[in-house]
Computed example of a mutant assay.
Amino acid sequence: MTRTEMLAQAPEVYFPVRTKTPWGQIIQGGIVILVVIWVVGAFAASGVFDFATVVQYLIGPQILLGVWNTLTLATLSTAIALVLGTLVALMRISKNRVLSSAASVYVFIFRGTPMLVQLLIWFYAIPRMVGQVKLGIPFTDVIWVDQPASTFFTPFVAGLFALSLAETGYMAEVIRSGILGVDAGQRDAAKALGVPRSKITVQIVLAQAIRIVMPATANQYIMMIKNTSLAYTIGYMEILLTVSRIYYANFKYLELLLVAAFWYLVLTAAITALQHVLERRFPAR
């Protein structure tokens, strides 16, 4: 019997795989936990804030209204920016130089100026420039809105215009990167098969681009949740203005700011969880 035959007939012997205990990772994690416990304990024991006040206002009706207003403005602004950003992104990659140049100028202006400045322009300057707002169906007697611009541009309307148009500049670049990330060979193959250009753009390019940019879009939504705090300056009752009016009355500054921070974290966590669900449901590849 040869050596090969003897090895083939020999019983198989299994040796257990031993892994080293990751003491380094355990020690590092323990240090982090201890530091967090120490910081939280020192903060709680310092007596600089009243925990009972935090609990009192955490789910108060005024605070919940501010949370709802924040979520409403952020969601509508992001949705509008997603639609307009898609149009601007398509203009940016267009072979028409007029369209691509106009889109480039739009992105440059709205990304290059602070959102706060744009908010103030829409609330204070635009009404004076417009004078009277008159909306309806052209060449008919159907009029939906006919009132002074100062009345029409409420804090919510001004904030919606400003945040939506500003976010469109960022969203356009996000979507453009997703469009460029789609393999050009798919477009060429669709053209060779005689698929109309509109179907190629919507059903092939944008359908994949939206999946590619989904994490970045969720990140922009989270940024918009926080950017709504800028509407504080024009009197929109979002989270920050709501808590500020309360702490100006009771002087519980830190407690109310902690309440605001808590709700911003809650909204961010909810959007992040929704993002993970959508990413698993609609993977990029």
Rank of each mutant, 00 (worst) to 15 (best):
M1K: 11
T2K: 03
T2M: 00
T4E: 13
L7H: 09
Q9R: 15
Y14T: 12
F15V: 01
F15Q: 08
F15T: 09
I26C: 00
I27G: 12
I27N: 04
V32H: 10
I33M: 13
I33Y: 14
L34G: 14
V35H: 06
V35T: 11
W38Q: 07
V40T: 13
G41V: 01
A42E: 13
A44G: 05
S46G: 15
F51L: 12
A52Y: 09
A52K: 13
A52T: 13
G60H: 03
L65M: 13
V67Q: 00
V67G: 02
W68T: 03
N69A: 05
N69F: 14
N69Q: 14
L71E: 00
T72E: 13
A81D: 03
V83R: 12
V83W: 05
T86K: 06
V88C: 05
L90P: 01
S94F: 02
S100C: 06
V105G: 04
F110R: 06
G112I: 03
M115S: 14
V117F: 15
V117D: 00
F123K: 06
Y124L: 10
P127I: 00
P127N: 00
R128C: 02
M129Y: 12
V133P: 10
K134E: 11
L135W: 07
G136T: 05
G136V: 05
P138G: 08
F139Q: 10
T140Y: 14
W144C: 04
D146N: 15
A149T: 00
F152M: 04
F156W: 12
F156T: 09
G159T: 04
F161D: 01
A162I: 06
S164R: 09
A166I: 02
E167K: 13
G169V: 03
M171D: 04
E173D: 03
I175A: 00
I175C: 04
R176N: 08
G181C: 04
R187C: 01
Q203K: 15
A207M: 09
A207V: 03
A209S: 08
R211M: 02
M224F: 09
A231N: 08
M237R: 12
I239F: 06
L241N: 10
V243P: 07
R245I: 05
I246G: 13
Y248T: 11
A249D: 10
F251C: 01
F251Y: 15
Y253N: 09
L256C: 08
A261P: 10
F262R: 01
Y264S: 00
V266W: 09
A269V: 06
L274Y: 12
V277M: 10
V277Y: 11
V277I: 13
L278C: 11
R281K: 14
P283I: 05
